[in-house]
Nucleic acid binder design. Structure first.
Lengths: 198, 198
DNA sequence: TTTTTTATGTAGCGACCGCTAGAGAAAGTT
DNA sequence: AACTTTCTCTAGCGGTCGCTACATAAAAAA
């Protein structure tokens, strides 16, 4: 193998360019990432992109594979290496919390947020503020409960509110992904087991 | 008040049209809903839409207000009416699980999914399948644990996996919305308290 | 060198986006 | 009736989208 290519050699590194594309899709989502964005970040012209990666969809497919083998590989490792189911799941969540907030690359999970595209910053910010405001109302109500002595004081209202918010948002995502009402109620059953005693 | 309008009266009901717009934004997201989609569903021409609602962003703003006062109002009611913080949070989650899967309108929460726009069905489905596949690997690992006697048998592997998946997706969303690493680790602390004993 | 093969750069295609000018239609006012 | 005000319809604007034809450049093969 390793036979010399015949024609003019590619002027860019394919892996580097693919990583640049991954970052774009990760940060802005599939639709909101334009081919112009991609070519600018990858440092190549549109014809080179199409020659090397096919069309935009195919490129995104390659990005998904690359993500699964790099940034998204921690889940599989946790499942394979931890001795118990509990340890595996806890490690998945712990490493997710770290990975999702790691500096140097976009936050969150590509597979979850690649479908999230907002070209209009005002709309995106309005929605984010609305979500955070909802969590804040949770925190406020929980603080009332703490002040009333309902809840052990070793749990912060904001942490508890963020937890409820995360479950809430997870329920919304799962409902979109096809979960049934019974399935979601079972999730709530489990979620409430985490509630601290008085 | 109630003075007669001067010119030609509007040929459509504003509230009905607004509700139609809400459904479109809810189902397809802000960006993926085109003005052509809106005018078709609302049964009016583009100039009528712009005359009655301003531009697309302003219309979406009205939609958010309408949503908060109707489909999205259950949260506020729960916070106001339940006597304890725990009861309030549980009711929020229970009613969310019901509302998010209710037939007759799009699933999930508008405020969460209006930023989710995917015009390309293949991409949307690929991402959804990937997410569901991840939950399935969780379920598989958990079932191993149940078979090994690690976990009380009254908890199903699939329910537990969906719970972990929901928290996972919530972590991702919260990281996008600005939560810190410490904040997310605190969420994981709480999430793991729900884990069933052996 | 000449030929063949592949990559690159320019330039622009057709389709769709949000949005609107301008003419006509339908109401109240006089 | 004539006039004013407001809405609706047709048609299309400028801009951006994903994508590509075509000429040229750079390598191996003959």
């Amino acid at each position: 193998m390793a036979t010399k290519q015949r024609g003019r050699p590619r002027s860019f590194d394919r892996e580097t360019a693919l990583e640049k594309a991954l970052r774009q899709f990760w940060e802005h989502g599939y639709e909101a990432t334009t081919v112009a964005d991609l070519t600018r970040e990858m440092g190549i012209g549109a014809p080179s992109l199409y020659a090397a990666f096919g069309d935009k969809r195919t490129l995104f497919g390659e990005v998904l594979v690359r993500y699964a083998g790099s940034y998204g590989a921690f889940g599989g490792r946790a499942l394979a290496e931890e001795p118990t189911a509990r340890a595996a799941m806890e490690r998945v969540l712990r490493e997710a919390a770290d990975a999702f907030t790691e500096p140097g690359h976009p936050h969150g999970c590509l597979v979850i947020h690649a479908a999230t595209n907002c070209t209009t910053p005002e709309v995106e910010q309005t929605l984010r503020e609305q979500r955070n405001a909802n969590v804040a109302t949770f925190a406020s109500r929980i603080q009332q409960g703490i002040d009333a002595g309902e809840i052990a004081v070793d749990v912060g209202a904001e942490d508890l509110a963020r937890y409820v918010g995360a479950v809430f948002q997870g329920l919304s995502q799962q409902s979109r992904d096809g979960a049934t009402r019974e399935g979601l109620q079972a999730v709530v059953d489990l979620a409430m087991r985490a509630w601290p005693e008085a």
